[in-house]
Write a protein that binds this DNA or RNA. Structure first.
Length: 515
RNA sequence: GGCGCCGUAGCCAAGCGGCUAAGGCAGUGGAUUGCAAAUCCACCAUCCCCGGUUCGAAUCCGGGCGGCGCCUCCA
């Protein structure tokens, strides 16, 4: 049984899809006006993992992420840069997609764009006006929050508590919390014809329209960053449920945001906001202005991070908690992952099989096995059980990743105890146990979307000539060691260490790796 | 001011009333090694403070202190 925390009820609920066996997920995507930074990857990685887990549990999952390609920020950026909005949106969408691919997010089934759904947005808006939930005012159309029952139910706030807020066009609104469904075009802005004159969609409406078009008027999971609970999602529910007369989403899931930890104290977001409230301080304490704010691809390049390390970093804590960004932390996660990569090489040395080629079970039931009296396999089965229990509990990837480390340590111990690095100590039964253990590791890692393919070799240079030269050095060193000439042997190894190459002596010979 | 989240070892982090408080990074000792590297083993926390509930609390309740988020078209 999978339990999921629902923002709506503020409790963990047993997950039950609307339609048996099928799950629809809608996650609010980016406004494509600038290159993606690491913070944009948080939600996608989490929901990609959630989708994998649901598929693993036998559900047929459809996942939708919208692309907002018409918006104030896009207009501003376009005016600044001189790049037409459509072109800006296209290149930034490409950048976003490239980043998703890097971190292994490949489960998104639909990427609807706001500009492809203008007609439906207009219809939706008309419908709300017809039903009395919205009103037109001088070319704008506003949603009338006072007419929506339960307005505030998602973010758990009341209209009374929101008095005094509101934007610059408040005079056109009946209530300061009313929000635009349709915005009248200003000169030079992109616009579409509508019954209220030329204009463009408001911020929230595209999600209501596109989710209904693809997933239906009621679907299973609506997700996004915690920052979207209010006003974005609150307004989505209000307009969708007013329009359709039925619940929009069964479960609302919100992930914690990435923060720039080291900068927070110094820049002090809180006091400055309360006292000053100026633009600059609003940026303080947030990811903007820190290393994490730079383009994700640039970050990977400059810090030489494996994208998989970033994915693992994001999954190493529970999704609802905020994550502090720090280069050091990601680096230490990478150090931890090296244990796995070394094990995979070891596995190949011992069994002759490539870890990444193991065909692991894709669904839960298929991964179960009877360990019999095998001590190793009993523990493997136990680890698998604990991994799945963590995932069942509101997708606790933090707990699950811990189990993965325990599992690889157990497998390494088995290789040590049975001395399997020595070919003479190998036998079919032991190798079979090891293989089943590795297969389970691969099965569980697959759920998290990691270890699906080998990490890219570090910084080129592993060409044929390098290989030959390394073999020569290793051979020379082996001869020196045989002759007990350790001075020469150590000189070779130490010099290589300085070049960033590590030698590892093993029963079967010497391996080398680049740092 | 309103609503909400969080405070577990040097750092990160799981844990949601009851076995010895997961796991990672860093560190220390040991096995292994010619010496290393890697691997394995061991060690490394009475869970911010004060009360309360309970046979029993890191886990529940109240109060402090500290950090953070949203309320302002950031994922």
């Amino acid at each position: 049984m999978i339990r999921v925390y629902n923002t709506l009820s503020k409790t963990k609920e047993e997950f039950q899809p609307v339609r048996k066996g099928k799950v629809g997920i809608y996650v609010c995507g980016p406004t494509v006006y600038k290159p993606s930074h690491i913070g944009h990857m948080v939600g996608p990685v989490i929901f990609d993992t959630i989708k994998r887990y649901l598929v693993y549990n036998g559900y047929d999952v459809t996942w939708v992420v919208n692309i907002t390609d018409v918006d104030d920020k896009l207009i501003v950026r376009s005016n600044e840069s001189g790049v037409p909005i459509a072109e800006l949106a296209r290149t930034m969408t490409d950048d976003y997609m490239a980043c998703l691919e890097l971190v292994g997010v490949d489960g998104i089934d639909h990427f609807p764009k706001a500009t492809d759904h203008i007609e439906a947005i207009i219809k939706f808006t008309e419908s709300l006006i017809d039903k009395g939930f919205a009103y037109a005012a001088e070319g704008d159309v506003y949603f009338d929050v006072a007419k929506a029952k339960d307005y505030g139910k998602l973010s758990h706030r009341t209209l009374e508590a929101m008095q005094g807020d509101g934007g610059g066009t408040a005079e056109l609104k009946r209530h300061s919390a009313d929000f635009a469904l349709w915005k009248k075009a200003k000169p030079g802005e992109p616009s579409w014809k509508s019954p209220w004159g030329p204009g463009r969609p408001g911020w929230h409406i595209e999600c209501s329209v596109m989710s209904a078009a693809i997933l239906g008027e009621t679907f299973d999971i609506h997700g996004g960053g915690l920052d979207l609970v209010f006003p974005h999602h609150e307004n989505e529910v209000a307009q969708s449920e007013s329009c359709h007369g039925k619940p929009m989403a069964k479960v609302w899931m919100h992930n914690g945001l990435m923060q720039a930890s080291s900068e927070v104290g110094k820049l002090g977001g809180r006091q400055t906001r309360a006292v000053e409230g100026d633009q600059a301080s609003q940026e303080a304490g947030k990811i903007a202005g820190s290393a994490g704010a730079k383009s994700f691809r640039l970050l990977l390049e400059e810090e030489k991070f494996q994208p998989e390390t970033v994915r693992f970093f994001l999954l190493s804590t529970h999704y609802r908690r905020p994550i502090d960004f720090s280069v050091e932390r990601i680096r230490s996660v990478g150090t931890g992952l090296d244990t796995f990569y070394r094990f995979f090489k070891r596995y190949e040395r011992v069994t002759g099989e490539n870890f990444y080629a193991i065909e692991a079970p894709q669904v839960r039931a298929a991964g179960e096995f009877d360990p019999g009296a095998d001590a190793l396999l009993k523990e493997v089965a136990d680890h698998r059980q604990r991994f799945l229990e963590s995932m069942d509990d509101d997708f606790n990837t933090g707990g699950a990743t811990g189990v993965l480390f325990e599992l690889v340590r157990r497998l390494n111990k088995f290789v040590e105890d049975e001395k399997l690095e020595d070919p003479k100590k190998r036998d079919a039964a032991k190798l079979a146990s090891l293989k089943l253990g590795a297969k389970t590791l691969r099965e569980l890692a697959g759920i998290l979307g990691i270890f699906r393919k080998p990490p890219e070799e570090k910084a080129g240079g592993d060409d044929q000539l390098t290989g030959q030269l390394m073999q020569l050095l290793i051979d020379l060193r082996a001869e020196a060691r045989k002759a007990k000439d350790f001075a020469t042997a150590d000189r070779i190894r130490n010099s290589l260490t300085e070049m960033g190459i590590t030698l590892e002596d093993r029963p079967g010979g010497t391996d080398w790796t680049r740092a």
